[in-house]
Nucleic acid binder design. Structure first.
Lengths: 199, 199, 199, 199
DNA sequence: AATGAATGAGAATTCATTCAT
DNA sequence: AATGAATGAATTCTCATTCAT
């Protein structure tokens, strides 16, 4: 059982790392950078994390816990129609970056930077995306059966497209942060997607 | 005026760099890697490129020339309706990665990896995206005037969404290359976007 | 506050650097050379010094502290005549290289090698020489007022000449180390200079 | 027999090299720098000079020819008293840098930078200085016999001191170029030296 | 007489990681 | 729980030199 102090330090390191990974990328961020940002020494960081990799994996885990598992928990077992679930899913997905900006950008950036680079990261990333994709595709499938989603939509490909769009959205949002407000962005985006699939 | 031999070597370096940046990211790729991949020495790379930065900038330039300028050239002055232009724009955009896979992925990866990291790249990236965005937004605007695009669509945000989606699409495509064919992906994606905006 | 161990290592690096700079010049000496000479790794050198430049600057500082400030401290406020001060100044100056051989040669070599090359060093070198020159010129001025120094001597130019002579002396001493003893050299040199200015 | 054009290029390279060695030192100057300064390619430089070493040696030779041999030729066989010869020697020596600034500084800088660094340069430098020293010492010896030079002067050490002073003088002159005029400098210096040895 | 492409060794510097304290 | 010193391998980049043309 870790002490409260240790826990605080641990989270401080995670938070600083996310911010730095967003700003400078994974390879662009050194342990020294993280040490400086947390007012700790490099040694201290190695006390809390086995190595740079494990820092990354913890961030991926945090994403899975706070985004994916949360999303599934909130939507999956609702006793409402499929289209309503889809709307809630989109709302959750689009609101998430507003509350967890760093975590969210971090995942997007890391997937672009690390995907393909080394199998050790690939596996984790793939697992997360598969889980996400499977869930979205299932919802769209339900929608088709229910008749609220257009017939010519392939659930697999549509799910992929929605996730893609959301990913790219984050990248563009990051690049245009000063020009558009997150709320407007999210609203326009949601309407856009609903138009696309709704019968 | 560069000699034919120099030109060949130059392009060989650019090509290998794109492939490597895609696979391992910009920071993850060393000049040594590029030297090995091209069967040249590190010194030879530095004969053709001032430094690693300029290698990157040349790739960005190449993207601007082969994708953006080409797209603008082909679509802008057509004597057809706005919706037809939008369709051609989407077709060009979606076909492009099939013919220029490395260049295209490279841009996506680099924008995610480098954006925000260092102002020197930011400027170039921003310039390219602005140009792209301005063009797409103008087309959608034309479509609204013409009456072929839904009235509740904001051209600026919709353009952004289309570009986003396309970006994210590439990331996902990269991660799912083995599961879906590029052609199917593109087709599904195009239908999706047209549904979203068409009146 | 640096630990005792760090201080020892720090000084070991400074000492080795001076010896190597004397033997091979600043540009001729690599960090690898210094690492080998100190039985440390290159990384360890960079732990103690930001870069090669700062190593150099520390040596210049050390010269200022151990030679110039010491000299000023010992001579400036003596309650004796100007000519006596001049003699003591010369004695101090001429004895200094016998006790601080490396430091002294190092300064001479670095000034010849680096002067004009890069403004970053120029500033420091100039500061040190100005301070030295100002002090010597003042002493000679006092001597003139006192009547013990020839009237046709211009303090500024004479000070410069004395400093020059001393500098050149070191270069030649270095080149003739085996032929002349430092003591004889210094003695002859002192007589020479006194003859030159004494009324 | 080299063509006129080749000779011109050759000299252009030598001149540029001297200027650059003065400004950035021997190790600080690259063949690329020289190529740029001469508007030639590196290859062209290697056509005229075997390597960087031989460039240096040619400069040392030029110094020996234009300074030393000239000085000996002008003074050695004069049918005048020793003190007069000494005066002429000093005048020649002190005027030389005014007419051959680059060559002169070059020698000083190279001796400081290279002496001790590598035997191959040491030899040449030592030869030149020995020849110079031998000549000056002989003159002072003659002066003593003639009775115009103080009895307590040791010719060997005095010669060394004069050469030293002149060397250091150049370094200081270089560092103070803007503050003192060469002419004044030389005059003050000559008076200084004559005072020192004259009976 | 000169160019331009390329080599290969070595330079400065960074950085993940270790470990005694 | 954390520090500070050190390692060693990798990285970007420079540079003297070569050689076919």
């Amino acid at each position: 059982m870790r002490s409260a102090k240790a826990n605080r330090t641990y989270q401080k390191i995670i938070d600083a790392s996310m911010r730095l990974f967003n700003k400078k990328g994974y390879y662009g961020t050194s342990i020294s950078d993280i040490a400086q940002a947390t007012h700790l020494t490099k040694g201290a960081i190695y006390f809390h994390f086995k190595n740079k990799d494990s820092l990354l994996k913890e961030i991926l885990n945090e994403y899975e816990r706070t985004f994916l598992d949360q999303l599934l928990g909130e939507v999956q077992d609702l006793r409402v129609g499929a289209m309503e679930k889809i709307k809630r899913m989109l709302r959750f997905t689009l609101n998430f970056p507003l509350r967890h900006r760093d975590l969210c950008l971090c995942l997007t950036i890391l997937s672009a930077e690390l995907y393909g680079s080394e199998p050790k990261y690939e596996q984790d990333l793939r697992r997360i995306y598969r889980k996400y994709h499977k869930f979205v595709a299932a919802l769209i499938g339900e929608g088709k059966e229910e008749g609220s989603v257009r017939e010519d939509i392939d659930p697999d490909l549509a799910a992929l497209t929605i996730i893609d769009a959301h990913e790219g959205n984050l990248i563009q949002w990051m690049m245009n942060m000063k020009r558009f407000k997150g709320k407007d962005f999210a609203k326009s985006f949601m309407a856009f997607l609903l138009n696309a699939i709704r019968r």
